[in-house]
Simulated assay, not measured.
Amino acid sequence: MSSIAINPDGIIRRSEADDAREEAFLPTHVAQAHASFLLALGNGDIACTWFAGTEEGKPDVSIYFSRLPAGSRQWTPETKVSDDPERSEQNPVLFETPEGALWLLYTAQEFGNQDTAIVRRRISQDGGRSWGPIETLFDEPGTFIRQPMLVLSSGEWILPIFHCLPVPGETWHGQNDVSAVKISADQGRTWSEYPVPESRGAVHMNIVERRDGTLLALFRSRYADSIMSATSGDKGRTWTTPVPTPLPNNNSSIQCRALADGTLALVFNNVSATPAVRAQAQGRPTWGVPRTPLSIALSSDEGETWPVIRDIEVAPSPPPELNVDKQDRRMRELSYPTVTGDAQGRINVAFTYFRKAIKFVRFNPGWVAGA
């Protein structure tokens, strides 16, 4: 077994293996950490949130938050920003309103049952230094989130969601998940929902607005085959049916954001299930595909093509000692990436590091092409 040292002090250092990139382990002092979310704030800070506890789905899982002050090389100590002893709180999303308020959205589910999840919210008026009361934003059971909320060119706010719908006589296993969007025309006071047609299995919908005002959505596939895509020409009211892209997916999360120059940066696991594994699943969700390598792709044509791809990190083989209590697929987990640009033009990425930590890396866009 190989061994990997984790120092969760939040200090950003030059990578020993590649001096063209910098990295840090965010301050995490809980048994398992997962599903981070980065957001560059208007004041130059970068915020990060994730969930942590003994194990995903258990009631002691809560949301944590850290901030990288502008110009600093050290993330602030983590703070716990949710603590419901009866629900597992997961998949946090950050959103900064045009007025500068910072929203924290996250799911809260009963033990092990994703189809019981509701969406909660807290608001900070000081960039995450303090938080207002916990509120329920969407109370329909089975409502889940993962990806950024956007302010569209129309001024409307759009939030991608997916519904974890129960199947009579079966426990939730992702077999009936469908996507939709919530749209607000009054700064989040009221919301309307619009479904994505024929989207069963296409989840974690990630929306970017193109220069012509159309919307591109990219999806995780429950069938571990390809990243899926759909488009909307009416600001999210109607969508095309999701179709496969040339990029693979392993039934794990992705994230895509537009950089300042319009380039799209997509972070994902550049791997899919083999045809034999998918055939064995017999049309049901495919689980257990290794979540490595963790890669980044760039598109200069608004998602039409992704010609530049580079691995950010590859899990070692054999897996590290820090997860000897888990199956191989769990040990080889570099997953749930999140990406954002910053005021210096760098690309910032965070991801789950073997469920034991959140790793942060940053580099210039030229690094992706090997420049």
Score class of each variant (00 low, 15 high):
Ile4Tyr: 07
Asn7Gly: 15
Arg14Phe: 14
Ala31Lys: 07
Ala31Tyr: 12
Ala40His: 05
Asn43Tyr: 02
Asp45Ile: 03
Ile46Asp: 03
Phe51Gly: 08
Glu55His: 15
Glu56Val: 12
Glu56Lys: 08
Ala70Asn: 12
Leu94Arg: 09
Glu99Arg: 14
Ala101Arg: 14
Ala101Leu: 15
Ile118Met: 14
Arg121Thr: 06
Arg121Glu: 13
Ile123Leu: 09
Ser124Arg: 04
Gln125Gly: 14
Ser130Ile: 10
Glu135Thr: 11
Phe138Asp: 04
Phe138Met: 01
Glu140Asn: 14
Glu140Pro: 14
Thr143Pro: 02
Phe144Asp: 04
Met149Val: 08
Pro160Gln: 04
Pro160Lys: 05
Val167Gln: 13
Gly169Asn: 09
Trp172Ala: 12
Gln175Met: 06
Asn176Ile: 11
Ile183Asn: 04
Trp191Gln: 04
Pro195Ala: 03
Ala202Tyr: 06
His204Ala: 09
Met205Leu: 15
Met205Cys: 13
Val208Asp: 08
Lys235Ser: 15
Thr238Glu: 10
Pro248Lys: 00
Asn250Glu: 13
Leu259Arg: 01
Ala273Ser: 01
Arg278Val: 01
Gln282Thr: 05
Thr292Arg: 09
Ile296Val: 10
Trp306Tyr: 00
Ala315Ser: 02
Pro316Phe: 03
Pro318Lys: 03
Leu322Ser: 05
Lys326Trp: 06
Asp328Gln: 06
Glu333Val: 13
Leu334Val: 05
Pro337Gln: 05
Pro337Ala: 04
Thr338Lys: 02
Thr338Leu: 06
Gln344Leu: 11
Lys359Asn: 03
Phe360Leu: 10
Val368Met: 01
Ala369Leu: 05
